[in-house]
Amino acid sequence: MKDIADELSEHAFFESLNPGTIELIAGCGVNAVYKPEEMLAREGSSADELFVIRKGRVALLMHSTERGSLQVETLDAGDVLGWSFLVPPYRWPVEARAVQTVHVIRLDGKCLRDKCNADAELGYELMRHFAALIARRLDATRIQLLDLYGQLEQ
């Protein structure tokens, strides 16, 4: 049976990390399964986990009084969810909910932070990975922000 380290090293987000780093991270992780509609994170709650999605789809939702709940992004196998564990105030800015049955590796945020603090090299390596991911998501968000397919105001 595969252990957490094997599963992490096969995941798109971690595949370029060296085995030693993955071994260290794996110590913070457990497998978890979420049923359809089940909540992974509530907006405003403490961000204590990083979800490494192995299977299934997770929707990120925001709630507005005027427009109701809206899905603003979906994440699938190969994606990770929850970089909020890295940056203060360690709170979830959105709600995350399973669309289908979702299989994840749940990494404990505090455990990861402690390891990063203790090992600057590991911390830097992981930070670089997240910076790249956040930059790409930010690019995508900017395009989304333009509402390109909507009616343009003259």
């Binding site: 789809r57 939702l61 709940s69 809206l70 899905q71 790409r136 995508a140 395009i143 397919y149």
Partner: peptide, 21 residues
């Protein structure tokens, strides 16, 4: 799609994100 009600079971996000896959 760029945004959807919770009933939508498909993908949400800009199309460029999916090219990698």
């Amino acid at each position: 799609v760029d945004a959807a009600k919770p009933s939508w079971k498909g993908d949400v996000g800009v199309v460029t994100r999916y090219i990698g896959r």
